[in-house]
Structure formats: C-alpha cells, structure tokens
Simulated scan of single mutants.
Amino acid sequence: MAEVILIAAICCYTGITVLNILNSGVHGLGLAAAGACLTVLFALQILHSQPGARRAPARRRALTLGLQVLVTYLPLVAFEAQWGAMAGFLAGSLLLLLPPRPGWILYGLVGVSMLVPPVLGGRSVLDSAYLVQTTLLTGLVIFGLARLSDLVRVLHESRGELTRAAVTRERLRFARDLHDLLGYSLSAIQLKGELIHRLIAANPEMAKQEIEDVLAISRQSLADVRRVASGYRDLSLKEEIGSARSVLSAAEVETVTDVRIGSVSSPVDTVLATVLREAVTNVLRHSRATYCGITAVEEDGLMTLSISNDGVIEGYCDSSPHSGSGLGNLELRLRAVGGDLTVDRGSADAFRLVARAPAHGELLAGTDGPMEDEAAWMTV
C-alpha cells in the first residue's frame, strides 16, 4: 500500500505539470519534447524511490542524478514556471540518494533556484515564493513517501525474522530440555536395568525393588517430556538430590551429601536441579567413580551446588554421534539466572563441578535459557 501511494503521488505531480504545459498553449514539437522529458523524469523518480536506491553504486547514482538535473533544468528555458513542479522531483531524489548533509544542502539550493523562472517570465515576487515553496514541499513529500515505503518493507522483513527467531528459540529450548531432563533418566534406567539383570537370579526381592524404581523413573521421564512440550519445566533440587543418591547407590558409588537449602526461587531451583542431573549423568557415563560428594548450601543469599567424584577416565571422549554438550548447556542456563559454572580437575582421576547463583535470582530479560551460543545446542 505504501508503494502504491508513492507511485500515485508521483503520477499526480507529473499530471499537474502536464496540465500546466497544455494550459500554456504548447503544440507540436514542443509538446512532444515535453512529453519525452516528463517520461524520463517519471522513470528516474520511480528508480530513485526504490528501496535500497541509496546503496546503489556511486557511479550509477551520479549518472542518473546528472540526467535528472538536465531534464529538470533544460526545459525551464522553454516552459519556465510551468515546468517548476519537476524540480521537486530532483529535490526529493537528492535527499533519497545522497548522504544527509550534502543532500539537504542541495535540496535547499534546488528550492532557491526556483526563484529564477518567475523572474525571467516577469512574474511577481509572490509567484516566485509560491514556486519555491511548491518545489520544496514536493521534494519533502516524495522523500517522505519513499522512506515510508522502505520502512514498511523493513518492518515486514523484521517481523518475518522475529517469527523465525521465535521458532528457532523454541526448537532450541525443546532440544536443550530433552537433553538435560532425559539424559539423566535414561542413564538411570539403563544402569538399573543392568543391575536388575544381575539380581534376578541371586536376589529376586531386591530385583523387584529395583524394577519399582525403574517404573518410578520412567513415569517421571514421561512427566518431564510432557512438561517440556508444554513449556513448564520446574524441578526441585531437594528431590533431585534424593533421586541422585538412589541412582548412584545402585551404581555402587558411595554418596555423601550436605544439604542446607533455605528459600530458593523457582528458576534457580530448576537450574540447579538440572545441573545436578547433568553432573550425575556424567558421573555414570564418563567415569568409573567409587565416590561422589554432593553439597548444596545457601549462604548470604548465594546458592552453591558442588558435585565432586573420582574415577575420571583420563583423556575420555564420548565418540557417539549424539554425545551432547551438557556442560555448555548448563553454563548458559546459569548465566540466564545471574549465576556461573566452574569445573575443577584435582588429582589425576578427580573432578569437581561448582554452580553458583543468587538464591532469589530470576530469569534475565529476554532469556528462556539463553541463546547466545546456539552452536552448543546444535550438537544435542
């Protein structure tokens, strides 16, 4: 619609000039020459009003502007004031194609130059002022409508980009949450399945208890998937610590916990619970741990979660094509609530992960789990 209005305005100004020339009694070759010049000016103005015309090569802009200057001023010799409206097109083109400072200076000079035709034609000072004002107003209208058309186009393109960004954001959130929530659960199910396989013959009662644990974990996994799909992903750090003790115990990993948690905001509680899940998953998948220590302490409004273990396999690298990027995910999650993540390798087989966040932190504006490092999510 903005483009249609712009073209309509250019047509109307051209039509006014046509009526002025016809009213002046021009016939024959003079009328034909005026029609040719008007056609060229109309085409040039449409070209100069196109989106991105200012980004055209400087040589081309100089050529088209030079041609417009010729077909604007040369007919003034023959038609004088009747041709004056076309100077408004030139004024508008200067504003559209040149940088602001020279553009506005030349725009003003074009307006002042329109004092000459009325003087040559013996017209009054009022006619001169009228022609100057008309030229400047026409230039502003053309410039404003062209810029409006360009801004409307940019707005529509930006809206499309925002839509695509929102879709990408949701896709990355879904992939991240599936990795963080289900990686732990599936590792626990696999571990307990292997334990059940060993216990079936030797201790059926304990195997039955482990089967009940597997069913509970699988039900929780199903609930996690539903929460991810619906966007609700609240977790409890205390509950995750209890679950971690059970899973690590099944893996015959000695677990020592120190839990001193006060009031914690829901976003921080969820992020720290996710950190614990990923850390325990890494202990189970990437080490031969015999010991794991879990400390969750709140002091002076700062929540600190520390997970340490032994049994790290030196030089370990998961070669599976879907090994994930859990620590990168966790670092971005903590950054979203104003926290940070540190990793410390002690002795040759020791590993310690520490997550810190304000106890009452909230998600920072514009984050849902941050997106600064999309490449991290793409490996999930």
Rank of each mutant, 00 (worst) to 15 (best):
V125S: 10
T270W: 05
R285N: 05
T270N: 02
G92H: 10
F351H: 03
P358D: 00
T39R: 05
S319P: 10
G262H: 05
L74H: 09
L22E: 07
V283A: 00
H179P: 08
L22K: 13
L272S: 00
L106R: 08
T135N: 01
A202W: 10
P51A: 07
H156K: 09
R169Y: 06
T270G: 03
L363Y: 12
Q220D: 12
L172M: 08
R159W: 10
S218C: 11
Y232W: 13
S249Q: 02
H48M: 15
A175K: 13
T72A: 06
M303Q: 11
L47I: 15
D340P: 01
Q190G: 04
C12Q: 12
L94V: 03
G315H: 05
V71W: 06
R219Q: 15
S149Y: 12
A201I: 15
E3W: 14
A296G: 07
S347H: 04
L126F: 11
V225K: 08
C292T: 04
G293N: 05
H179W: 14
I196H: 04
V259E: 02
M303R: 10
D234Q: 14
S124M: 06
A350D: 06
S347V: 03
L63F: 09
G25N: 06
G193C: 03
I21T: 05
V116L: 14
L115H: 02
R173N: 09
L19K: 05
A2W: 02
A85Y: 15
R335S: 13
V110L: 01
E298R: 12
D180V: 15
E331A: 14
A58G: 13
T138D: 03
S24L: 09
R55W: 14
A244G: 01
A33P: 00
Y232P: 04
L172D: 07
L126P: 04
L235T: 06
W104D: 02
L272I: 01
Q220A: 11
A375M: 08
T168R: 15
I7P: 00
P57C: 04
M206K: 14
D177T: 08
A43V: 15
C317P: 00
L222T: 13
V71P: 03
A202F: 12
L334Y: 04
L162M: 13
V18C: 10
E210Q: 13
L74W: 11
A129L: 12
M378W: 13
Y232L: 12
S149C: 11
R260I: 09
Y184K: 07
D300C: 08
L272A: 00
Y107Q: 05
N23Y: 07
G346L: 03
A129S: 02
A165I: 11
A32W: 13
T257M: 00
A58P: 12
R277Q: 02
S230L: 04
R164M: 12
A81W: 09
I217C: 01
S236E: 02
R60C: 08
G144E: 09
I211N: 03
I307Y: 01
D349E: 07
S221C: 09
L76C: 12
